[in-house]
Design a protein around this nucleic acid. Structure first.
Lengths: 244, 244
DNA sequence: CCTATCCGATGATCCACGTCATTTGCTCGA
DNA sequence: TCGAGCAAATGACGTGGATCATCGGATAGG
């Protein structure tokens, strides 16, 4: 199953541990001190994925855990007739490896070329067991993801198509604000219209139509097909319903 | 805010720690040994809620954490115009208190009379910090809830009304199977049709209509308005799409 | 450079479910 | 026992977004 990915396997580079890693303060390993990090690093490897490559499938046994360092992934679940629900997108610094019953709950696929650190799961678990701050950080991340998932339930269960798109653009905008630098009202959309549709529980046609409508109403401008400028954030926020 | 609830405050009963507590093996305190449990117990209180009473509102500061011991709660989020999304139901043994930014992410209300143990949050956090197995259990529970939330996203984003109802009935059936005793194909519905509707992202009329259709098709029987007998589980499972 | 392919945009039509209105039936208090 | 009040069921009708079909424009491979 990992044949394509394994070709890119290599040990973490030597020298200073994780030197130059740009996501270390965001990632789960950010809670470790220099010595712990060296020890942690020795358990891990790196891996590259090309756009379109699958990292794992829903139902696969969880033998490894990952931290995404560059690129973007989509996470999704399928119904037996092919209907897809994208449950989230992963950005640099995000952790992949929480599970129940040692099975992946979703599939993960690169939507841009990506690089990851990975660790054999049993070794990772052993390490975590001996480093309480890391355990705490994992719990904190899980609670955070859970809150985001509940927010997404409101979107999927109760919002109109326009409200869903507005919420989505604002989520991306807030995320890009957390990365320092770069204009805050310019949002990149590395994923396809289909991916957005499957994330928002609508069809790709509806995504296209709502984006066109936002454009007509001067709420957004399209710098490129994958680059949106937020022109009237207040209006989008009102649509998205920030209270919910 | 808690005026009504506080009237029912009382210290945990003395004598043997949490003696007779029927949810101890399911709840987060189940990982503690007898001595730890006595210490833990001394931090906590009990509280009763009547049907319809609110435990806390979305946005309230998280000053206390809870374990539900009897009864059922619904958790929900509101949009500013009153649209409601029920994000989950809580049953005996479930833990309430995960949060981001020390704010409750949802409101919690009793749909049946309920009893809870509660703990001041800071003391609970301190205790957890010194008891790694409990921290691990909380993480395990969070991962479990996250998987359930992702499953719910598939339901809300991609399933038809009939598929949603079928999934819902099967979730309840599986849950009632975990409690030993009682016929497995008899499911109690303590929540109203409106609550079910707001959980499944449909209207209460649609819930009524689909239940009637399932009845016509002999997939279920109604023993009472709040008691469903699963008559053709295979058919429901096919509808719900167990693969997803 | 040309052409096949894919993605996105957009129009025409349809239908699952929402909305609104009415009826049924249960619960509880007088 | 009766009737007020409310939840659930059901019917009639409307509509937001799905489906299906077409077209334009970017990209890649020959």
């Amino acid at each position: 199953m990992f044949a394509a990915a394994e070709r890119h396997l290599e040990a973490l580079p030597g020298g200073h541990p994780c030197q130059g890693c740009e996501v270390r303060d965001k990632a789960v390993c950010g809670v470790l001190d220099r010595g712990e990090l060296a020890q942690f690093k020795s358990l891990g490897w790196t891996l590259k994925l090309s756009r379109g490559q699958t990292l794992f499938h829903e139902g696969d046994p969880v033998t490894r855990v990952f931290t995404l360092t560059t690129g973007t992934l989509k996470l999704y679940k399928l119904l037996s007739d092919g209907r897809r629900q994208v449950t989230g997108f992963m950005y640099p610094g995000d952790f992949l490896g929480m599970s129940v019953d040692d099975e992946h709950a979703f599939s993960a696929e690169a939507i841009e070329d990506a690089q990851l650190c990975w660790f054999p799961r049993t070794r990772f678990d052993d390490f975590v067991e001996e480093h309480a701050p890391m355990e705490r950080e994992l719990y904190r991340m899980a609670a955070h993801e859970l809150a985001a998932a509940q927010q997404q339930m409101v979107l999927l269960g109760r919002k109109t198509a326009a409200e869903r798109l507005a919420s989505f653009l604002l989520i991306l905008a807030r995320r890009s604000e957390q990365l320092p630098g770069g204009p805050v009202d310019l949002v990149r959309l590395p994923m396809s219209r289909s991916d957005i549709a499957d994330y928002l529980g609508v069809t790709k046609e509806t995504v296209s139509r709502v984006i066109s409508a936002f454009r007509r109403d001067r709420m957004i401008r399209l710098r490129a097909i994958d680059e949106v400028e937020i022109a009237d954030r207040g209006c989008l926020e009102q649509l998205a319903d920030c209270a919910g």
